[in-house]
Deep mutational scan, measured.
Amino acid sequence: MSDQEAKPSTEDLGDKKEGEYIKLKVIGQDSSEIHFKVKMTTHLKKLKESYCQRQGVPMNSLRFLFEGQRIADNHTPKELGMEEEDVIEVYQEQTGGHSTV
């Protein structure tokens, strides 16, 4: 019986991991920090939209990076291997420009 009891508790931990929340720091170019608590399985588009709304800027005017890689709207913290207190960097999107060649 103890084996049966242990097995469901392991499964519960697996389920808990799926719905687990982590805190992420979003740091802007001006070094301002906003902290977000997100589920591991939530699409990061929600975090990006919330950040842009707080900053009063359109979402397409900023780019969000985690460990140097651009974050897509459909990425989740779990897919990117994010952990508690990880940092997302935000930069002004640069458009235009010309070749110097």
Rank of each mutant, 00 (worst) to 15 (best):
30 D>E: 08
32 S>A: 13
83 E>P: 00
89 E>I: 13
6 A>G: 15
75 H>N: 13
48 K>L: 03
3 D>M: 06
68 G>M: 00
14 G>M: 08
66 F>G: 03
11 E>P: 06
39 K>F: 00
35 H>S: 08
2 S>R: 13
97 G>N: 00
64 F>D: 02
45 K>L: 10
7 K>R: 12
18 E>N: 11
85 E>D: 13
60 N>T: 05
64 F>Y: 01
24 L>N: 03
70 R>K: 08
82 M>N: 03
56 G>C: 06
43 H>P: 13
57 V>F: 06
55 Q>C: 13
36 F>Y: 09
65 L>I: 10
16 K>N: 11
93 E>V: 08
24 L>R: 02
91 Y>A: 07
23 K>T: 10
68 G>L: 05
3 D>H: 11
87 V>L: 14
48 K>N: 03
6 A>S: 11
24 L>M: 07
17 K>F: 08
66 F>L: 03
54 R>V: 12
28 G>I: 15
86 D>T: 10
77 P>I: 00
5 E>T: 13
35 H>K: 11
93 E>H: 12
39 K>E: 05
60 N>E: 15
66 F>W: 10
17 K>N: 12
58 P>L: 09
45 K>H: 10
61 S>A: 09
59 M>H: 15
83 E>T: 15
70 R>W: 10
44 L>S: 02
48 K>A: 02
23 K>M: 09
42 T>V: 11
38 V>G: 01
94 Q>H: 08
87 V>Q: 13
80 L>M: 08
89 E>C: 00
77 P>M: 01
41 T>S: 12
73 D>W: 02
6 A>L: 14
79 E>F: 02
19 G>H: 10
41 T>E: 04
89 E>V: 09
79 E>N: 06
89 E>K: 06
62 L>I: 15
56 G>D: 08
23 K>S: 11
5 E>K: 15
83 E>Q: 06
56 G>K: 01
41 T>M: 14
61 S>R: 07
38 V>D: 04
57 V>S: 05
97 G>L: 07
13 L>Y: 11
67 E>R: 03
27 I>H: 15
12 D>I: 13
12 D>R: 13
11 E>I: 03
47 L>P: 03
77 P>C: 13
38 V>E: 01
65 L>A: 03
48 K>Q: 01
43 H>F: 08
50 S>V: 13
